[in-house]
Design a protein around this nucleic acid. Structure first.
Lengths: 241, 241
DNA sequence: CGATCCTTTGAGCGAACTCAACTCGGGTGG
DNA sequence: CCACCCGAGTTGAGTTCGCTCAAAGGATCG
């Protein structure tokens, strides 16, 4: 239990400060752990879940299906994230949540979250902050798909995932696991699979990054940031504020 | 004072239920009203505001400037909205907030908001919900700029603004004030001004909507929704849940 | 009654799309 | 053990949606 909730504590400490008391409260949350394969829906559009999902291992993403059969991915989630914490106060899911890879997730009942929030109002503010950072990421994604060229969009996603993983200690040097297919990258950036492929080749030939066998290695962080016009302010890490 | 805060009460009642007690608490918030012309920045990227802004009259939008001089608008805001409520828990602004038109706005100190949240934990949850709905709107905008064709993107924005205005009683029949320039619509949808113009002509010739002299009239709501692939679920109105 | 901002139109260009085929690697079963 | 299959990545060619550049009409206002 505690071992799993450590992931959440670490994530929260990357975006805020927790008192010892709050830390204990988080570690005391009830959690049910579940192993899932790739491409498993955790919640679907229209669901009314009574629990939220803490990522323990693997990659998840939020998405909406389009009438024409297309799919728009709206965020990637890594261990420590609670991708559907919002369902605590929004009854009906307006999007789906799926595993991109084999994953381990923990479910925390809404009742327990509500209880902890009312018992620790300042901790509630910090969970609120977490959802506000998710919102800030959505805003940045609007910029990404709305105004950047194809290679920049992809570079931006890579910068973001790298920093999110680094914040919870899941990078090794300049590289990290990134088992996301080019089709998924396309759904996240509003590009066709073919164009994603050619754009990645561009990033590769510019010696910025390599992306193969489910692993991403950043050869030139400054160059990648520049290509992405990436500014990490929107991630609102604690150490930056 | 109370007269101004009525706007906020009405907005909150469109997305949640307020007890009499909570209503009184909201109406008791301190507020400083200010009249602003068009194109006035209220907060800028990098600011650390100590108050949030309640829209009383007019249109506001959130935006980010791009290195190339471009601008991405990430949301439009109408009376009753608190576009920067998030600054309550995110120290540094990662975007700007500007008036699109002559506007009247009220400023509410963060201290007062924090106090009301800790005194009324359930009301705090409802304000949290409000920010979560904003996040849901950002998600839908990712879909909008990421996967829809030009006329659909514009139609979608019109559907959204119409329902948001209707929820606070600011539509008259099938029409509403929409004093947003085509250049701004372009910045919001990731399209060039020229292409916005041609796309609006398409919507017009399809007899869906007219858009002139700062007013939008919807001739065929179902057709417009269809063109936009608009599903209002993401707005999370109280009556729908 | 210019000045200015917004909208509209025309024409050529380019980024990204679609369709289609081929490669490569890992798994599975005969 | 190899043949096959399937999913993911890659490549080529033609097309299209939306862009840029440029300029001409309205509308509104001092």
């Amino acid at each position: 239990m505690t071992r799993h909730l450590d992931r959440l504590v670490r994530k929260l400490e990357s975006i805020t400060r927790l008192t010892e008391d709050e830390k204990q409260a988080v570690l005391g949350l009830p959690i049910t752990v579940k192993e899932l394969g790739a491409d498993q829906d955790i919640v679907r559009e229209g669901d009314r879940p009574s629990q939220s999902c803490l990522v323990l291992e693997g990659f998840l993403f939020l998405y909406k299906m389009l009438p024409d059969g297309g799919r728009q991915i709206m965020s990637f989630h890594v261990p420590g994230d609670i991708p559907d914490l919002q369902s605590l106060h929004l009854t009906v899911m307006d999007h789906g949540l799926t595993t991109a890879t084999q994953s381990s997730v923990g479910f925390i009942p809404h009742d327990a979250l509500r209880a902890i929030c009312h018992a620790h109002p300042v901790l509630a503010d910090k969970l609120w902050r977490d959802t506000l950072i998710d919102a800030a990421i959505f805003r940045e994604w609007i910029v990404n798909v709305g105004s950047r060229e194809a290679p920049s969009r992809i570079a931006h996603v890579l910068c973001e995932v790298f920093l999110k993983l680094q914040a919870v200690g899941l990078t090794s040097g300049n590289s990290f696991e990134f088992p996301i297919t080019q089709a998924e990258i396309g759904d996240a950036t509003g590009l066709s699979t073919v164009h994603v492929n050619r754009s990645i080749q561009k990033l590769r030939s510019d010696k910025l990054v390599s992306l193969e066998k489910g692993r991403c290695t950043i050869w030139d962080w400054d160059g990648l940031k520049r290509a992405a016009t990436f500014d990490p302010t929107y991630l609102h890490f604690a150490k930056a504020e």
